[in-house]
Simulated scan of single mutants.
Amino acid sequence: MYDYKSFDLIIDARSPREFDEDHIPGAVNLPVVDNAEFAEVGTLHRTNPLAAYQLGARYSLENISRHIETHISRYGSKSRILVYCFRGGKRSKVWQDVLETIGYRVERVKGGWKAYRRWVNEQLAVAPSGFRYIVVSGPTGCGKTRLLAALQDNGAQVLDLEALATHRGSIIGAVPGKPQPTQKLFDSLLLARLRSFDPERPVWVESESKKIGQVQLPDALLNAMRAGMTVAVDAPMALRVQLLREDYAHFEDDPGSMIERLRYLRPLIGGEEFDRWESLATEKRVPELFERLMRHHYDPTYRRSILRNYPDIDASPKIMLDGLSLAELQPVAQELIARMEQPATQN
């Protein structure tokens, strides 16, 4: 497929609905027809194909004219433009014809988004194995995600899967006001991130389950991570509680909403323990609630999971963090990079 970063502009000519489901990362949605127009033309095509094509052409020219004024006009004549639609057919061709008439250098994705999607699936089956991974493990609230940010600040290659998934990975991990990407878009974002890495250097990643919220990690990535090195991170309970209060601040005023998300755990942890959670939520004793959740659910669950996926975790280097702010984690990140990346570089 294409080296997408070599283009000055990538145009997704499909409808906004199709674009939202998945698109080439970095592409701009300049639809030939919008959602309503796409549905209208499709419905008409079933009874009168000629009228449908005429209507589609009128909508296309109107929309492309507007896109040229609002977006295309900012690009110079030497700009390289890539355009695609669903199958590489009419919608991308009309864009290509117009842009080439203006004088732009334009390429069209052969086979369109469908060909791109096949390529993503093929790549995700093999690309993850091209890297060596350093897997940061540790219980809920110990600062793994913040440590990854500090590692990236100090030049490490970081694969932040939770950022790509727009989810913190736990039952209560949905990010308020930010929906998760579809599985297809997550796959696209993941592959784009992997392709940005240097295979000669390690990739730092947090230990994750198969699913992060509603999206799934490819088996090839999980297998490659499990074959990598591990670092076991922890922090005192008081710091972990404080981190959860900061990262899940939306539950401070409404801890009951958190309890509702956890309700399906009642049969697993027992009615007496769940009743205790509900009591703490009702009384808005949030620090105690977070601590109890970790001690009685998250910590034992994580321990079972990490031993299943990383059976040698107890032999890993161990780090007890004494501060979880980004500033406090900078020297920790620098030490980790020097300790775990340098030997691999020298080999």
Rank of each mutant, 00 (worst) to 15 (best):
I269S: 06
P267H: 04
M258L: 13
Q242V: 06
G213L: 08
P311D: 12
L239T: 10
N223I: 04
A235F: 03
P287V: 05
P317Y: 07
L243E: 01
G323A: 06
T282L: 00
L321Q: 05
A235M: 09
K284P: 02
L289H: 04
L307M: 13
S279V: 00
R292D: 09
K284A: 03
L221K: 13
G271H: 14
G256Q: 15
E288C: 02
K318P: 04
Q242T: 11
M229E: 15
G256H: 15
L239C: 10
L293E: 00
R292M: 12
S257Q: 13
D299H: 02
Y298M: 02
K318R: 14
E288D: 15
D247W: 05
I306D: 03
R226D: 02
R261K: 15
Q214I: 14
Y310S: 03
R266G: 00
S196N: 06
A281W: 04
R276Q: 15
Q214L: 14
R304N: 13
P199T: 02
M294H: 06
M225Y: 01
K210C: 08
A227W: 11
L321M: 09
K210W: 01
F290N: 02
Y310I: 02
S316N: 13
L244D: 01
H297T: 01
D234L: 00
P287Q: 06
E200H: 14
